[in-house]
Structure formats: C-alpha cells, structure tokens
Amino acid sequence: MTIKVPATSANLGPGFDTLGLALSLKNRSIIKPSRITSIQVRGEGSKNPKLCVDNIFVKIFYEHFYRLTNSKEQFRFQFENEIPISRGLGSSSAVIVGAIGSAYMIAKQPFTHSEILALALKYEPHPDNITPACVGGFTTALTQKDKVRFLKTNIPDSLRAVVVVPDHAISTAYSRLSLPKKYTQKEVIFNLSRSSMLTAAFFSHRWEALREASKDKLHQNIRMRGFPILFDVQQTAFKEGALMSTLSGSGSSFFNMCYKDDVKRLSKKLSSKFPHFKIFELSFDDRGLEKITD
C-alpha cells in the first residue's frame, strides 16, 4: 500500500494553533508485508540514520495496527519524503496522520477524518497542522473534549504558494519558550479580528483582504527576531505582489500566497535575493491523507 500526506502551513499569521492549509509537497509511505521490519528513507531525512532505527511513523503505525488487529505481523517501510524536516511545514503532523491512517487502511478498518484527528491529538495537541494534513484545503479547527472540530474549504487553482525554506531549523518547543505568558487586551482583540477576517476571506474568496487579515501580534515577530532575515523575506514578497506573507508554523520557512500569474515573478525575485534558501513554487492540496491506487 502507498499513502501520501501533504505538507502544511499553520498559524498563517494571527491564527495561532487554529488555522492551517495543505500544500502540494507530499510524503509518500510504501508499506509491504515482510518477515522482519525494515525501513528505507529517501529524500528529506535520508541522511539521518536515526530515522531507520528509531522511526516515529513506524512506532505509531504498529501501536495502532496491533490495537486494531491483535496481530504481530511485520512490514517493510519505504518513505519518500518531500517535506523538509523542522522547517515549519508540518513534517511531524504528516508522520502522525500518515501512520494512523495507514494502520487503519492496512488493517482494513473503516475510519473517518474525525477519528484520525482525535487519535492524532495524543501525539500533537494542536489541531492547526494535523487537520489540513488529514483533510486538505484551508481549515479552521479547535479541540473539544479530546476531539477536533473543524471547517474546511478548498483553495482555487487561481492561487499559488511560494515557500521560502532557509537552511536553518527552528524547534517548535524551543520557539514557544520565547513567547510571552501574558498578552494585553488590545493585542488579543487585534488577533481575534484578523484571524476572523482571514477565515472569512478564505471561505468567501476575498483575497484582497488577506494582507491586513494576516497580521499578527502574538507570536510571529517575536519568533522572526531570532532569524531577522525573515523580515526582509516578508517585505520582498509583499513588494512583488504577495497577497499574504507569514511565518510558516514556528518557522523557519516563510509562506507566501499569490495569484498564479504572479508566481514566477515572485519566485524569481526571492531566489535572486536569497540564493542560499530553497524556494518552492507550490499549488494547494485539497485531498489530505490519501491512498494511492495503481
């Protein structure tokens, strides 16, 4: 069986731990019966030998496969990874969602997206990345009594993402430690208004609202100060026609959305100005977790 899970960009400025969307970068996992467990990694992470010994996907997969089947069957895992690791593009969420989903598929057990997301919360307590990884599109999500409640809308083909990926990892856990423990009422209201407007803009296709609606006062600038060249990335993106430009998750990647007609110009300018960073021209993924059929 082969399954794929998309990369995600979360927070999107003001939607801290609640908003996210799915991108066309994918991790593919090929799983076959075997006498012993074996692991092969291609693409992102292939140079990290630990992933072939202490692999989180494999651990989560077996946990749920054994729970569902009461079987001790072994498998061979081949991972073909496109999602950069520890760059704020949802690599961990892709692993979690992919492992749980594939366990259900190989066990031939029915499941719903809501069931997968509820189980994923055990490993990732925030729904902003796991939700679009599971269902695709743009999502707004919350947790309620160990469940994820979400709304989703597809993203039209007239839009594209240009994602800037620095060669500089940022730990989400470490990044959170730099954030304030308290915020002013004015800051909270600022983010509530922008997050609400951003969500409305995606659902109503009012793209002209995104630039103002994607502003944030809770986390983004604080995180970017640890890697200040990201301010220049954002300024350049807006100058070249980006509809919105936000830190992707906790970083270090930067997510930029633009119209399809502007993607080449924006990508070329960012590549020229930041030659040491990877630049991805991406469409959006509206399917999420998916089994690939031959």
Rank of each mutant, 00 (worst) to 15 (best):
S175W: 09
S252M: 07
Q234S: 14
V163N: 04
G45E: 13
I279W: 09
H64D: 09
T140S: 15
R194I: 05
I292E: 14
L192G: 10
P49A: 07
R42L: 13
M105N: 07
R287Q: 12
E44D: 06
I56F: 14
G137N: 08
K273P: 02
Y104T: 01
Y123H: 13
Q78N: 08
K186I: 05
L19V: 00
T69S: 06
I31W: 03
L230H: 06
L210V: 10
I292K: 01
T2N: 11
T153V: 15
S283T: 15
K278G: 01
A99D: 03
E44S: 07
R223S: 03
L270K: 02
I222C: 03
D261L: 07
I229W: 05
T139V: 15
R42A: 07
M224G: 05
N27R: 09
A107F: 10
S214A: 15
K273R: 13
K26D: 10
V164K: 02
F65R: 05
N11D: 00
F277W: 11
L192A: 10
P132V: 05
K186F: 08
F111D: 02
D294F: 09
I189Q: 12
T112A: 03
A213N: 02
D294S: 12
S248A: 11
L230M: 15
N256M: 10
K182Q: 13
S29T: 14
S34F: 02
V135W: 05
Q144W: 12
P228F: 11
T131M: 04
A141V: 06
L210W: 08
V188A: 14
L159V: 08
N48F: 03
T246N: 14
S9L: 06
H113A: 12
F231C: 09
N27C: 06
N191Y: 09
S46T: 06
L210N: 07
S114T: 14
